[in-house]
Design a binder for these strands. Structure first.
Lengths: 200, 200
DNA sequence: CCATATATGTAGTGTTCACTACAGATGTGG
DNA sequence: CCACATCTGTAGTGAACACTACATATATGG
């Protein structure tokens, strides 16, 4: 039973718009004016709802990872470690060049290096990337236990590798690489996971 | 025979300092105050010598790529495509975690996404990364011609792949990954190139 | 219908930013 | 020794930034 005047905008819709601005310009490159403009609200509404610029970023990151969480679940549901890597990297090649979104990945575009006062933004993004990596690692641990990966393989290293390739592809996408170019990278990258798979 | 009062600072030494600031904070995150402070000069000296902030960045990038050019020449001098990839990625694992420099790679940390007015900074960085990729591609073309790589292999895709892994490792380094973690990634990554190598 | 609580729009706030005017300093060319 | 060209330090410039005071609007609780 909330009191007072009700909010006139939908927070999630507004977050989607904010997400896109951060995605395209990065945390420091995005201005409050651009954000409020895209969200269709005025600064006081933004601050009342999200606290400050960094709070808005975190809310956008939460929404981003939530939206991608479902997809990541599909990825790790693949039958083998090799298929997980392929589904992940091919999917990323498509997603990062989807014209419906800015190119690349918000968890990279958001801000890799930041100035004084925003030092924890890069860490915030890194923490979210680490979540994906952990999910991959757990999947590869299982693959090793199932005999799908070689007994000598290192699931954590494999997960870190797939994560690194994803990030690299994201940077390439943001600087103009097209879908076909990214798919070729994914295709090569999968072969390293294949090399760690048990013979059949 | 230059006229007027001579410059009191060494441009290359100052550039090294500026390079480090851009490397650590990114183009937008670096302030003129931080730059002049690190360079040991005052703003008018900076602007007289480098034009503006973006000019300073370009000069720093020139110096960075020049310093790394020698190393890249060593990389492509390796005997096989596989050795090129290994030397490149292992070297990057070391360089990006060298405590003498900020973590990661200037060509990534410099700025992946930028705000209005600095839109061409990301492209500037991408162009420098593309130079390395081209050098790798040429080397892999040769490797294919020499029968070192399979006749079905795609040298351009391989070069793009190695470049993507390098970038991904750089981002990881900047968010705290240590040398051993990066070496593990490099180790896995090399296996994809190995898979494209002709049997012996 | 009134007191209260929250949202909104206008119009700012102080701060920090990249950049520069200007005066004095220090060299070269004649 | 004198014009001149360039550098240097001080001290700013206007613009853009994140953020907010305040009056007004719109809901709920009694």
């Amino acid at each position: 039973m909330r009191m007072g005047r009700p909010r006139e905008f939908d927070a999630e819709t507004a977050l989607d718009k904010a997400m896109e601005v951060f995605w395209r310009h990065g945390y420091e490159g995005a201005t409050i004016a651009q954000l409020t403009d895209a969200m269709g609200i005025n600064p006081p509404s933004l601050y009342a709802c999200f606290g400050n610029k960094e709070g808005l970023l975190k809310a956008a990151l939460d929404r981003y990872t939530k939206l991608r969480g479902a997809w990541m679940d599909e990825v790790v549901a693949a039958r083998t470690a090799r298929d997980v890597a392929e589904r992940m990297l091919m999917g990323i090649a498509d997603k990062q060049t989807d014209p419906a979104n800015p190119p690349g990945c918000l968890l990279v575009q958001g801000g890799i290096a930041c100035g004084t006062g925003s030092e924890n933004v890069p860490f915030e993004l890194a923490a979210r990337r680490a979540q994906n990596e952990d999910q991959l690692r757990d999947r590869f641990v299982r693959a090793k236990a199932e005999g799908d990966l070689k007994p000598t393989s290192d699931p954590a290293a494999l997960a870190r590798y797939v994560s690194a390739v994803s990030v690299g592809m994201g940077v390439m996408a943001s600087s103009g690489a097209d879908r076909e170019a990214l798919r070729q990278v994914a295709d090569v990258a999968v072969q390293a996971v294949e090399a760690q798979s048990a013979r059949e």
